[in-house]
Design a protein around this nucleic acid. Structure first.
Length: 223
DNA sequence: AACGCAAGCAACCGCCTCATC
DNA sequence: TGATGAGGCGGTTGCTTGCGT
């Protein structure tokens, strides 16, 4: 059978050294990381597999984008958080090069405060009115949920579990207006047709990307 | 220069889901 | 079909750094 999950005996904890980083990167570049648990032993690291995985995903991956978040990235995070709640990995799929941990940290240190200052209520799990509506509806009827906000089809999208894959919802035009007006306290009247179509494109891209990459992106950096 | 405080970030912890036996 | 391990995720902690006094 498989060996126990967390053999912590003699495992090192705390900050990674440059040498450990180098060992981990070299090993993954050479052999890949098919088995995180076996990796530290194979690479000669006194770390548990989880720790190696976290270090690789959050820091050592070659496609990691370091540095400050752009305005566009901030907007994306804010909008997606409205819809997805604290599902950082799902949000991360729409921000290439950013990790869930990074986004989570950024949220807690910057955006959360900003939103609280602006007086918007934040629900820790699924903050959007849309989702709450969807969840309420889905509890009384299974399957696709027709939101009161329009043609929003949220089947598989009501966050019954945090592992629920982000399938691109079947999005009708009502969705965009609902999100934009709900999210930012604006009315649709404030959007001229141009703004609305930009919003539509934005959300279309987000959901298409999410749907395509929510799982695939977890394999980023796999060789 | 020394101290205290707050912000930022890396890393750990515990739980959940899925795959395998 | 139930038990178990691996991987993945979100929450949280605690260290480091920067800034004000």
């Amino acid at each position: 059978m498989k060996t126990p999950c967390c053999e912590r005996m003699g495992m090192k904890k705390g900050p990674w050294t440059a040498e450990e980083d180098h060992i981990l990167v070299s090993h993954i570049q050479r052999y890949g990381h098919g088995n995180w648990r076996a990796l530290p032993k194979q690479a000669g690291l006194l770390r548990c597999g989880k720790s190696c995985r976290l270090r690789w995903i959050n820091y050592l991956r070659p496609d990691i984008k370091r540095g400050k978040f752009s305005k566009e990235e901030e907007d994306t995070i804010l909008k997606l958080h409205e819809i997805l709640g604290n599902r950082w990995s799902a949000i991360a799929t729409s921000l290439p090069g950013r990790t869930d941990n990074e986004i989570k940290n950024f949220w807690h240190t910057h955006l959360k405060k900003r939103i609280q200052k602006s007086g918007v209520h934040i629900n820790g799990n699924a903050s959007s009115h849309i989702l709450q509506e969807a969840q309420a509806n889905s509890s009384s009827s299974s399957g696709a949920v027709s939101s009161a906000y329009g043609n929003v089809m949220l089947d598989n999208y009501g966050l019954p579990s945090r592992k629920n894959p982000i399938n691109p919802p079947t999005v009708g035009t009502g969705f965009y207006g609902a999100v934009s007006s709900d999210t930012f306290g604006e009315t649709e009247d404030n959007h001229d047709s141009c703004q609305l179509s930009e919003e539509m494109e934005f959300w279309y891209n987000i959901f298409i990307k999410s749907g395509q990459t929510s799982r695939d992106n977890e394999n980023l950096g796999h060789y």
